Computed example of a mutant assay.
Amino acid sequence: MQSQQAKRLEKVADAISAIKDPLVRLAAAREARERFEQLELEQVKRLRREGATWSKIGALYGLTKQGAQQRFKSRIDAT
């Protein structure tokens, strides 16, 4: 069964896919990706502040502790 969040994201993706002009569609997809990446980074930062381990964060991505650190740590430290 699909979660409510997944259904909402699917609707967003469908709306972007329905844009007729390919350049406008690409621009919308790029903007959505950038916004979701920022949201993702904010959530990782928040989890770390609240004491979540890199191992737990990595598990959400199918990564090891080291993999999660490589993916996010430098981006978190840069902000």
Rank of each mutant, 00 (worst) to 15 (best):
D14V: 05
A68N: 04
A6D: 14
R30K: 14
I19P: 02
A59Q: 12
G58S: 06
Q66Y: 03
A18Y: 00
E31A: 15
A18V: 00
A6V: 08
L23P: 00
R33K: 15
S74F: 05
R33C: 11
A68R: 00
I76W: 01
R30A: 13
E31H: 05
K7M: 15
D14Y: 02
R8M: 14
F36V: 09
V44W: 01
W54Y: 07
Q5D: 12
M1D: 10
L26H: 07
D21I: 01
K7P: 01
V44F: 04
L39M: 13
A32Y: 11
I19G: 03
T64E: 04
K73I: 03
L26S: 12
K7I: 14
R46W: 08
G62E: 02
K45C: 03
I76Q: 05
L9N: 12
S3E: 14
Q2L: 14
E10C: 11
L47D: 14
D21Q: 01
K11R: 13
R25I: 04
R8A: 13
Q5L: 14
L26F: 08
R35N: 08
F36S: 04
G67L: 09
R35G: 04
L47H: 09
V12A: 12
G62T: 05
R46N: 13
E37L: 11
S17M: 08
D14R: 13
G51I: 08
A13Q: 12
E40G: 01
Q66L: 09
S3K: 13
R33Y: 12
M1R: 03
Q4G: 07
G58E: 05
A15L: 06
R35P: 00
F36A: 08
A15P: 00
E50K: 05
Q43Y: 05
R49G: 02
I76A: 08
Q38I: 05
Y61I: 09
A78S: 15
Q70A: 13
A6K: 11
Q66E: 11
I76S: 07
Q5V: 14
A27R: 10
D77M: 09
E37R: 10
Q69I: 11
S55Y: 03
T53N: 07
D21H: 02
A29Q: 12
I76N: 04
Q66C: 07
L41D: 03
V12R: 11
E34T: 05
W54R: 04
W54T: 05
Q5F: 11
L47M: 15
K56N: 10
Q43P: 00
A28I: 04
K20D: 15
K56A: 15
L63T: 02
S55W: 02
R48C: 07
A28P: 00
K11D: 10
